[in-house]
Write a protein that binds this DNA or RNA. Sequence first.
DNA 1: GATGAATGAGTTTTCATTCAT
DNA 2: GATGAATGAAAACTCATTCAT
Lengths: 206, 206, 206, 206
Amino acid sequence: MRPTRHKTIIDAARLEFTERGFAAASIRDIAKRADMSMSALYHYYPGKQDLLMAILDEGVDAYTEVCAEALAAAGADPAERLEALVGATVRFRAEHPAKSSVTITEERSLSPDNLRRYRERLAASTRLFQGILEDGIARGVFSTPYPDDARRGIIAMCNAVSQWYRPEGELTREDLVERYVSLALTLVEYHPRAARRPPAPHPASG
Amino acid sequence: MRPTRHKTIIDAARLEFTERGFAAASIRDIAKRADMSMSALYHYYPGKQDLLMAILDEGVDAYTEVCAEALAAAGADPAERLEALVGATVRFRAEHPAKSSVTITEERSLSPDNLRRYRERLAASTRLFQGILEDGIARGVFSTPYPDDARRGIIAMCNAVSQWYRPEGELTREDLVERYVSLALTLVEYHPRAARRPPAPHPASG
Amino acid sequence: MRPTRHKTIIDAARLEFTERGFAAASIRDIAKRADMSMSALYHYYPGKQDLLMAILDEGVDAYTEVCAEALAAAGADPAERLEALVGATVRFRAEHPAKSSVTITEERSLSPDNLRRYRERLAASTRLFQGILEDGIARGVFSTPYPDDARRGIIAMCNAVSQWYRPEGELTREDLVERYVSLALTLVEYHPRAARRPPAPHPASG
Amino acid sequence: MRPTRHKTIIDAARLEFTERGFAAASIRDIAKRADMSMSALYHYYPGKQDLLMAILDEGVDAYTEVCAEALAAAGADPAERLEALVGATVRFRAEHPAKSSVTITEERSLSPDNLRRYRERLAASTRLFQGILEDGIARGVFSTPYPDDARRGIIAMCNAVSQWYRPEGELTREDLVERYVSLALTLVEYHPRAARRPPAPHPASG
DNA sequence: GATGAATGAGTTTTCATTCAT
DNA sequence: GATGAATGAAAACTCATTCAT
């Protein structure tokens, strides 16, 4: 089952956009990378902007999915849920650096219409974090006095992973995840209520 | 003392680069914004790439300076020094969003030579944070088990400020600074040795 | 009996050619307008040029036919025949503005071969007018000293109708016809020989 | 005094537009004809559409001027004024067939804004004819019952001249003018009041 | 009869840069 | 110091047309 033309194109475009940036990437080079003529490419996507939007959409789709899965597997405990969400995010950023960096960097290149649509989708992800933080605070397990900035900080921290993490390095992906989960819990000032989470994965208790 | 032509040009270019990105910005528009002919512009800067490098250099210069000043005014205590550095960084990102965002975003657009030079300069800033964290850990006042990631996290967090902070909003710049200082100290798990900082803004001591 | 594919195509093409002009019209849009695939269209017509020629041919066919009918119904009197021909022409221009305007405007877009063929057909129409004028002059009922220019004038006048006449307006088509018949007779300086046409619709007799 | 670059370009563009039509003409060929690079051309005119508008403007300017001059030299008599206007028009169409045909044919290719501006300018010319006809009718020297259609007819007739007249032929330009003046006066049913125009150039009086 | 895919040459336009003055 | 003119390469995109199925 060879990859569909659409996928071939999107992959080529994502690489070019990641390496050079949207504006500097050329349709010619994308077509070359996808090993087809420019006109063939235009047969599948009506323009450069649509290519970008398709890539961003796909990126958000994929990220949204891993988040949903992780949260579905997690219980109701806010710490557990934050753990799941941070884990999913870091894992995604580490596994799909290209997908991630385009998603993060190229907002600016979107047409007004697409930008609006895209921002709405991103806001949904933000709200996932927000909901968990609010819940944790309400339950008294997160005690950060600055939930909004803590949220922004966590997201910025996790997103940055896609810029420096290299799987070939010493740090395994799961160790990486563990670290960022720990950092996130620290940032929100997590204090387990009772003894409910004895082997808490963050070291503050140690 | 009216602004020198160099400054006029750099300001115009920075705005264009910020709004459109380096690749999408056009020398024509920069010249128009600087209210001079393209040839005049070329008289001062030999090319687009040099314009970018000048902007980045200037950005790093300015940032380096505020960091140095802040650190000079701070004592030897790691917490105090981290406070100074985070404060300087957040203040800079909030005050100079354009300077900041170009600095952060346009690495990709640098020529190989310029990129090397630029990375070296950036590394110096990173080392400032690094030194403070190491010192704090050595002294036993920072107890984060992940100093590298905490550092990266702090920097990412602070940098992100330039993307969302609006001075017209409710949050004053100094409140913002206070928040990020607090978050940074939380993240490195700061525990004051003695009673030096009695009203410690983070609850990790519990 | 639903319209044949040929007709659907020709109608779509004529509209596109009229609205945008031959050169600016695109086969893609024509196919879209005809609600079929481009390949389907190419199944019926081998190319854009052939489409144009088919349209022009059809236009000339239709016009030729109405002229022939009108003349067949007219008697031998030159005034009556001119009346018939001008009436047929104006009626056609008013009823089929698209057909008319393509016919008139797109000569330029014909390939050399097609152009020759087309001009020959047009010349036939011209000769109809010419014959009638010559006859009228020979019989002494038309006394214009410039029969060639009067002919060209009449044709130009009638053709222009397709550019401005709107059936929704106040002027009915038959009133329009009457006017142009009158103007044409005036232009050729028609003077009835005897009392054959008592209520002559033109005022030269006064 | 060699022709300015602007003029060189406009002349080249007018020829291409006349020969091929606006849509089919290519900027490349225009530049080639003007013997300069495409980018040089773009240095003077920002786009194809502006080229067209410049040409049409120039055409209307020139035509407007000859009309104004002719009318200035004519007296108050409507017949004399119509003579002047038809003469100027026919002379212009015969002398500047390219200018004329672009003016007449390429309305369709104008952008909405330009079209509006252009139509307003054309309307002024139409009003010249209209004023004269109304005056002639008021004074009782023109007795056409259809002044609007007579006007349209005269204009269509005169405009058509640019399509067929060749100065190399037998008919001199001044003879041509004389003919069309005569035809126009016939069409408006000119009857000199008194004996003011004894050698009237139209035969209605004979 | 009909289709979706593909192509290569073409389009207008923009770009960073250079040069003569 | 400064300018308007000029350039060649490249950009995104469209076109009429062909072809395998």
